[in-house]
Amino acid sequence: MRTTPALLTAALLLALAAGCTTSPDASSQTPTPTESTSPSVSASPSPTSADPRVLARANAEDAVRSYYALVDEVGSDPNTPASRLERVATSVELEVRQADLEQWRKDGWRKTGRTQVTDVVVQSVILDNSDPKAGLVPTVQVDVCYDVSDVDVLDSAGASVVSPDRADRAWERLHVANYDYDDDPDGGWRVAALETLEKAPCAGS
């Protein structure tokens, strides 16, 4: 985690994926969208549906919620292995999160509170698994509005390092990919890339 004040807001808002590069192996390639479906506000699809798009959508939504929960957990406990992030992230996002966490721990930072996922909007479902090495893997694009009003980041002395200008609610776009789709179409979904969206935040509950 960089410690300059200008980056504190972006760090806490989980928007550090921008500007990072991928490595040449398949697991570090950012998924490549090739088609899209109409956006839809999150609603739990029928778990008995045989439609692979419906199942992918539901599994990706579950993966998104697990991602935010585990990022909070790992950030709050310096004894939690960084490797646990592999359960919820892959590719660029995994590299960013692990580097971020390593810097936090060097600086003696820790997170308190929990991120609330307020809105989840599925923007596209793409099940192209034709070339994983080129990033052509099943990918669900999900827009998430989250609330961090309960979240703080403390330094080694227990003082907050969060910018007073931080927005408590904001939108992010998550690209949730499954590089193991053939072997694990349900449980292989991970957040592969993330970007901050410039739009009005969702309303608070």
Rank of each mutant, 00 (worst) to 15 (best):
V140G: 13
S156F: 07
R114Y: 15
A56I: 09
L94I: 13
D155H: 03
S163K: 06
E61H: 03
Y146Q: 14
L154F: 09
E61Y: 00
Q123P: 02
E95G: 14
A60S: 06
V142D: 02
E198H: 09
D72I: 11
V117F: 10
A63V: 00
R53E: 08
T90S: 09
L94E: 08
G75I: 06
S23C: 09
S83E: 12
W109S: 14
V137L: 02
D128Y: 01
G187P: 00
P185Y: 00
C202G: 04
R53S: 03
V144Y: 05
R190S: 05
E93V: 00
A26R: 11
A69Q: 15
D119S: 10
D165M: 09
D51A: 08
T4L: 03
G204Y: 09
E198R: 12
Q103G: 07
C20F: 10
V96E: 05
D152P: 01
A200Q: 07
Q116D: 15
A60K: 08
V153G: 02
Y181C: 02
W104T: 10
T32G: 07
D152S: 12
G108Q: 06
V120M: 08
P132N: 12
E86N: 08
A167F: 01
A89R: 09
V161M: 00
V64E: 11
Y146E: 09
Q29N: 14
T48L: 12
P201M: 08
P5N: 08
T37E: 04
C145F: 09
T115N: 07
D72H: 14
S49L: 00
V41C: 04
S76D: 07
C202N: 05
V92I: 13
L154I: 10
V161T: 12
A18T: 15
T34M: 00
A177Q: 01
V54A: 14
V121C: 03
A26P: 05
N79I: 01
S130A: 06
T80Q: 08
D77H: 04
D186K: 13
D182M: 08
D100P: 01
S27N: 09
V162N: 12
D150V: 13
A82R: 10
V142S: 00
L14V: 01
E73A: 13
S40D: 06
R169I: 07
V71D: 04
P24W: 13
R87D: 14
V96A: 11
A69N: 12
V54M: 05
N59E: 01
D184V: 07
V125A: 07
S23G: 15
A56W: 07
L70H: 13
V88H: 03
G19A: 15
D131G: 00
D77M: 02
A11Y: 02
A192G: 04
D182G: 15
A56V: 12
Y68G: 06
